[in-house]
């Protein structure tokens, strides 16, 4: 029997270990699995390497995880935004590491890990400081930079609908990095707004096939980072 359903976000993240590499879906506020992140804060695993496009906003979600001292390194493309204060402060104090990866390279490194491709060549960063120290190779007269795959122990993902076997659909631009991260982690943990029976999602409409999903938790009314920030909330 396929048994992927977990009763709570707490039980779904309970085995995330100190030192784990954790991918967290979302682009800014949209598609960010806030409930799973807050469960990870409650759980307390530390020395984490976290992969996300950004570094969170305000004092909730990813920013709260960083602010709680659980993250030793961020891998992201854009670590600052109008409402990000936690990461910039720790970074400038030398208390957190940063690996800066261009957004398309970040997406493709994650996809490559899921697809079993250890490295690929991209034109992105050729002729810039971000290519320094990396292998450059010429194909058909143009230079490309080699980039390695990006694997993770766990992925925390938010989706709109999941069926019992983990087939997923998303909502609009909340999709972003989530389907890629499902593919790239050893254990993929999904929070879904709606959990339905197998057969209730048309196979033609499945975005992430269930083979990439290990754990499903239903979170029927997920909070949204922008709303929490507008309310002046912090976590814990």
């Amino acid at each position: 029997m396929i048994k992927k359903k977990y009763a709570s976000v707490a039980s779904a993240v309970a085995d995330i270990h100190d030192g784990a590499t954790v991918m967290i879906g979302g682009f800014g506020a949209s598609g960010s699995p806030i409930e799973l992140i807050h469960a990870l804060i409650d759980h307390g695993a530390k020395d984490l390497t976290v992969i996300n496009n950004n570094t969170g906003n305000g004092e909730v979600g990813l920013a709260a995880l960083i602010g709680n001292g659980q993250v030793k390194k961020m891998i992201c493309s854009f670590p600052k935004s109008s409402q990000s204060r936690v990461f910039p402060k720790l970074y400038q104090e030398g208390l957190i590491e940063l690996e800066l990866v261009p957004q398309g390279t970040l997406a493709e490194r994650i996809r490559a890990a899921g697809a079993g491709i250890p490295a690929f060549y991209t034109p992105t960063t050729v002729g810039t400081v971000l290519a320094e120290g990396k292998e450059i190779r010429s194909f058909d007269g143009r230079e490309y930079v080699m980039e390695p795959w990006l694997q993770a122990d766990f992925a925390l993902v938010k989706c709109e609908m999941s069926d019992a076997v983990g087939n997923l659909t998303y909502n609009k631009t909340a999709r972003n990095f989530n389907p890629l991260m499902c593919m790239a982690a050893t254990t993929t943990i999904v929070q879904t707004r709606k959990l339905v029976n197998a057969g209730d999602i048309d196979p033609e409409h499945v975005i992430t096939p269930g083979i990439f999903v290990n754990r499903i938790v239903e979170v029927p009314q997920p909070v949204h980072e922008d709303i929490l920030i507008a309310q002046g909330r912090s976590y814990p």
């Binding site: 493309s77 600052k80 910039p88 261009p102 957004q103 398309g104 390279t105 400081v129």
Partner: peptide, 19 residues
């Protein structure tokens, strides 16, 4: 700007200009 202490943030700019 490459200024010391600045937080580097590249986003998708390098992908866009190459592609």
């Amino acid at each position: 700007t490459g200024a010391p202490g600045a937080i580097p943030a590249v986003g998708g700019a390098m992908d866009l200009v190459q592609g």
